[in-house]
Simulated scan of single mutants.
Amino acid sequence: MKIAILSGSVYGTAEEVARHAERVLKLAGFEAWHNPRATLEELLAFGPAAFLGVTSTTGMGELPDNLQPLYAALRDRLPAWRGCPGGVIALGDSSYGDTYCAGGELLGELFAELGIREVQPILRLDASETVTPETDAEAWLAAFAAALQP
């Protein structure tokens, strides 16, 4: 199964989690693809059957700049991915209150608009509680991979 990993990162932490997820999913036997600056055309050319979003939050609860163009293109085109499995890993800092993991929430809402069905509840990784988010995501990634097995 082809899994597209979409990532949004400001300081590189979410991108590192996405790269780690790509390695974990490949070891689980999936064809995982991650490009932090992916265009819609590149994503469509890959032909994913499943999706993983990994993003931090910036500003007042927005997605990072590197994910904005793809997010906008997806909202404009709404590709036919109804029923495809997916999940989201959101990175944030709970000290920011209402905007904690808001970028991940936005990505989850986009997945819902695209008809991507959530196979794992969103994973929220709190920067005020962890220094190894890629390691902290491993149990969630294992469950995500298991949910994608035929």
Rank of each mutant, 00 (worst) to 15 (best):
G12A: 11
T135K: 11
L125I: 09
A102H: 15
P150C: 08
E31C: 02
E138M: 10
L91N: 05
A137K: 09
T13F: 10
T132I: 03
V54H: 00
F46S: 04
E129K: 14
V10E: 15
M1A: 15
D98L: 11
L110H: 01
A73T: 06
V24P: 10
W81C: 03
P121R: 15
L70P: 00
E31G: 03
G29C: 06
R23Y: 12
A143H: 07
T55D: 10
L40R: 14
E105Y: 11
E134K: 03
L43C: 04
G108N: 05
E138D: 15
H34Y: 09
D76V: 11
A18W: 03
L6E: 01
P48R: 00
H20K: 14
A4R: 04
A137I: 02
P133F: 02
A139Q: 10
K2M: 02
V24Y: 03
R124S: 15
G29M: 01
G115V: 13
A49P: 06
E118M: 12
A146D: 11
S95H: 13
P85T: 05
E15A: 10
T99N: 12
E31D: 11
Y96W: 12
A102L: 14
E113N: 11
M60L: 09
A112V: 09
F46Q: 08
G83I: 05
A38G: 09
T135Q: 12
A102V: 09
L123C: 06
Q120G: 01
H20I: 10
F144M: 04
P85F: 08
V88R: 00
T13Y: 09
I116D: 00
N66C: 02
A102I: 06
M1Q: 14
S7E: 13
W81K: 04
E129R: 15
T130C: 01
G104P: 01
Q149P: 04
E22N: 05
E62D: 15
A139D: 10
R75K: 07
E41P: 04
P150L: 15
R117L: 08
D136E: 12
W140N: 03
N35I: 04
S94G: 06
C84Q: 03
S128L: 13
A45D: 06
P79S: 02
L125W: 09
R77F: 11
G115L: 00
P48N: 03
A112N: 13
L27N: 15
E41F: 12
A80F: 08
V131A: 08
A73I: 08
P85W: 07
A143F: 09
L78N: 14
A127P: 01
K26D: 05
R82F: 15
A49V: 08
A139H: 11
K26L: 07
R23M: 12
